[in-house]
């Protein structure tokens, strides 16, 4: 197994608050890794540091043996890291298929002139992008709703549409921020299968999730952070019995 993503002493401060505090962990290629921790622990900040939405104050993000901490977000996406957002960020007024076409964008070439003169290359590319987009919609099971506006989809389907859009960028690594948020049990069960299917396509998965049933079932490795710092790492069984984790996280059940 090779290391695909590696966080090295990653640190982010917002004023006096240390949101992410010297976090180190590696993600092996082909793994499904969960990042868990109590609310406000800094999980989403870690994601934003990986995808270039924030710049780290210290440390480094290494993806495929290359430092990506200074790259702009769209470059990071074209290197092969795709993401979804915790608060759904779809293009609400556009059709589902167009949302997925947004993901196809970075694998296309045609510019404004090619569009005005509708060159053969441009038309071929459009056709291919549309096929890719339909394929990704089918993968998440939304093919029949391709021409619906994104805002008209159910909450769970909006989450799936975000995943389809991320997959359309043809990533090697996908980051899912609370993919099961707002889903019912049935949808969550289907999501677990989707996540496994994503991995079976050769895409490494890193996810944040509060739904412990999903985390324990889908993830092979877990990283636990609290107050911005990593407190534990290991397989789900080990994490469940880790006293530090129980105290920080699961311990709230014992009140």
């Amino acid at each position: 197994m090779t290391t695909l993503l590696s966080l090295k002493n990653l640190t982010k401060r917002f004023g006096g608050l240390v949101a992410v505090d010297h976090v180190n962990f590696d993600v092996e290629a082909g793994a499904i890794v969960g990042l868990i921790g109590p609310n406000g622990a800094g999980k989403t900040t870690v994601f934003n540091l990986i995808t270039g939405n924030y710049r780290p104050d210290e440390g480094d993000v290494i993806f495929d043996n290359q430092s990506i901490k200074t790259l702009p977000t769209h470059k990071i996406v074209s290197l092969g890291i795709a993401r979804t957002f915790q608060t759904i960020r779809l293009f609400h007024k556009l059709a589902a298929i167009e949302n997925v076409l947004a993901g196809c964008h970075c694998r296309m070439q045609s510019g404004s002139l090619a569009a005005m003169f509708r060159t053969p290359t441009q038309r071929r590319e459009e056709h291919q992008a549309l096929q890719t987009a339909l394929k990704e919609l089918e993968f998440v099971g939304l093919q029949s709703q391709a021409d619906q506006l994104a805002e008209n989809l159910s909450y769970g389907n909006q989450r799936l549409l975000e995943i389809a859009r991320a997959l359309a960028t043809q990533p090697r690594f996908i980051i899912l921020d609370e993919p099961a948020g707002g889903m019912n049990n049935q949808e969550t069960a289907a999501l677990i299968q989707t996540i496994r299917n994503i991995r079976d396509r050769g895409i490494t998965v890193l996810l944040i999730e509060h739904d412990m049933s999903l985390v324990m079932e889908a993830c092979e490795q877990l990283v636990v952070i609290e107050n911005g710092a990593k407190i534990a790492e290991g397989d789900p069984q080990a994490i469940q019995s880790d006293p530090k984790v129980i105290e920080a996280y699961l311990g709230t059940d014992e009140e």
Binding site: T73, H74, L94, A102
Partner: peptide, 27 residues
């Protein structure tokens, strides 16, 4: 033609949500 193309769509994506557009790989 311009608005019914990759270029036109990209403009609409960044108008709707430029964080999501950038996060989908659009410069």
């Amino acid at each position: 033609r311009l608005e019914n193309s990759r270029f036109g769509r990209a403009l609409n994506f960044l108008r709707e949500d430029d964080v999501a557009a950038e996060g989908s790989g659009i410069n």
